[in-house]
Design a protein around this nucleic acid. Structure first.
Lengths: 219, 219
DNA sequence: TCACATGTTGACCAAATGGTCAGGAACATA
DNA sequence: TATGTTCCTGACCATTTGGTCAACATGTGA
């Protein structure tokens, strides 16, 4: 950063880049703090410090603590939606489930803070996400569930309850972000590397496919 | 001190009932509030209100917010340990895994608030549980892992990574307590009843056993 | 009855909370 | 240079935070 004057504290060059950078810094810092302490437990002061900005500046950019929180949730939901593509009965169950598990795992790995933020929100009773859960997400689950059932009818997989299956995939992948502290404590590692992630993905895929008796589409 | 002498000499009965009742009220209320908002986000005031007592009284009983929190964590760990019995290579994999899933499910169902409290602690980086995770729990996992591997060697189940298997069972059962808000929002129910729980338990058991290729020990 | 330990709580405190705002700083255009 | 707009932030505010404490209430054994 260019420090042109000793008297002025932050001689920030005003431009789009700075704005974008500050905004990003705030969002990143806030995601981390909110994930760690929940909505109530997070303080704007702590977020500001983590972002390296004065508290007033954070409020100036984001309006309020709540607005910042909602914005972060929305960003996470957007990421989430990005991996929720449509499926049809004609698709191959093995392929779809494999891709589903892999993508979900990647999401948790790429955005662990966002994943934990989401978890904290749900843990607290989902005060800001009720509508999303009961609406958009519920429909998404029902759509997949219908396809799973049709697959079962066609003998492509066992007739398992599709909702529980979706929850199983969500929970078992989400675990590695949300319970990272536990995973690391028990495995004794400093962090899960790409190889670990790949191994876990393969493990989960194997268990789910085999467990649901998924067979090749055209046997 | 002379006072201490008198106190120890004559174990005062007092109003044990009232004391026990108040203490229970505080613990129950605190578990709920801490689970919902995390350690930082929970306020002693809120706990006191939920318990129907003045804030001073809560502090009188529990000493401090942190002491109360630690006590709740310890209580939950105790419940947890209660279902962690020993297993040996001679046991039947199907029986052990079935019982494990069922007990874990029952724990989450019987103590959803405690379950969420634990989750919030881990989510926040497990500041109070590091030692437990890296010590006692880690050893527990390693012990089971060794047995799972021996089972695999004996051809009683597939040679899957035992640690990931344990995490799978933990996460998929824990999910129904921690993400209750999501589960209810998506299923459209007010609560999961005994039948639902039974169905989920059966589902998870089936997937895990079949997914791991668990075979009956004899014949 | 008394003496004394224990139970209870309102009043209080310093610190931290989310948020506001006046006023200066930095720019773009004229 | 002058003017207007946007950006930035220290000072400030009412409220809430965890915790203390003195004062009073209550029960117990003598």
């Amino acid at each position: 950063m260019s420090q042109e004057n000793a008297a002025t504290k932050t001689p920030v060059k005003r431009n789009e880049a700075t704005r974008a950078r500050n905004e990003q810094a705030i969002l990143t810092a806030a995601e981390c703090i909110f994930a760690r302490h929940g909505y109530r437990g997070a303080s704007v002061q702590a977020i500001a410090e983590a972002a390296g900005l004065p508290k007033s500046n954070v409020l100036y950019y984001m309006g309020s603590k709540q607005a910042l929180y909602v914005r972060l949730l929305a960003r996470m939901m957007k990421r989430w939606n990005a991996l929720l593509d449509d499926i049809s009965v004609e698709d191959d169950p093995a392929e779809v489930l494999t891709a589903f598990i892999r993508r979900k795992m990647e999401l948790s790995r790429r955005h662990p803070e966002g994943s934990r933020l989401f978890a904290a929100e749900i843990l607290g009773g989902a005060p800001f996400l009720q509508e999303y859960l009961r609406g958009e997400l519920r429909e998404w689950v029902e759509d997949r569930a219908r396809v799973f059932e049709q697959w079962a009818e066609r003998g492509l997989m066992d007739p398992v309850n599709p909702t529980w299956l979706i929850f199983l995939i969500w929970s078992s992948t989400q675990h590695y972000a949300d319970f990272e502290a536990q995973v690391l404590g028990i495995t004794g590692k400093d962090a899960l590397d790409d190889d670990d992630t790949e191994e876990i993905t393969a493990f989960l895929t194997r268990i789910v496919l085999k467990g649901c008796g998924v067979r090749a589409k055209r046997g």
